[in-house]
Amino acid sequence: MNKNQAFPWDHPRFRSWIGVARACQLMQQAMTRAIADLDIKTPHLDILINLYRFDGISQQELAHKLLVGRSNMSMLLPQLEKRGLIERRPDTKDKRVLRLSLTETGRDLTMQAMHIQTGMIERIMSQTPADRCLQVAEAMEDIIHILQTMETSEDEA
């Protein structure tokens, strides 16, 4: 880099990207602390919330939704199953596929965790006008679309 080139952190897009990344990291840390009393970590919460929303989802579908590999699922799911929070059942049509569901205990814990999470999001986001929140959401949705398109193009190449 020569003296006439701007540093990356001086560029508005770079600054924006770093801001989003830092906000995500700080929120992750805050959520970790907030749900510690429930004896779950944020990856567990991601799983539980998705099972709450998509009862009977397969392990592969869940891994895809969470953008993680099957090896991550293989580590996390047994922990939740051992605690009696989830159940894994064979698919009725394809015995190789396991379907995931929350147990009643898992549903209760997920409701508690979602209450904590939504309260935290509300406290944080209420500091920003709704129209600005929507602008950020739309920008992030655009970025997600671009990244997914790039991934699909790379897979096809």
Rank of each mutant, 00 (worst) to 15 (best):
T92E: 12
L98Y: 11
I47R: 05
I86A: 03
G69H: 07
R107C: 05
E87L: 15
V68N: 06
R96P: 00
M111K: 13
R70F: 03
K95W: 03
E81A: 06
L80Q: 00
R89I: 10
K41W: 09
M27W: 10
E61Y: 06
M27R: 12
R83G: 06
E104T: 13
D94T: 08
D46N: 15
M31S: 01
G84E: 04
A34N: 08
L26F: 09
T105P: 04
K95G: 02
R107L: 12
G56C: 07
Q29K: 11
N50E: 14
Q29D: 14
T32Q: 08
L48S: 09
L48Y: 10
I18Q: 12
I86H: 01
M111W: 09
A21R: 15
M73A: 12
E104W: 04
M31L: 13
T32V: 01
L100Q: 01
K95Q: 10
F54M: 07
L109D: 00
L38Y: 11
S74N: 15
M73F: 10
L77F: 02
I18E: 13
R33G: 13
K95F: 07
T42A: 05
L66H: 10
T92G: 05
L62T: 05
G84Q: 06
M75F: 12
E104L: 10
A23Y: 09
L98S: 12
Q29I: 11
I40H: 02
A23S: 13
L102G: 01
A23R: 11
S101N: 14
F54W: 09
D39A: 13
V97M: 01
Q79M: 08
I40E: 01
R70I: 06
G84V: 03
R22T: 14
A63C: 08
H64Q: 15
L76Q: 05
R70A: 07
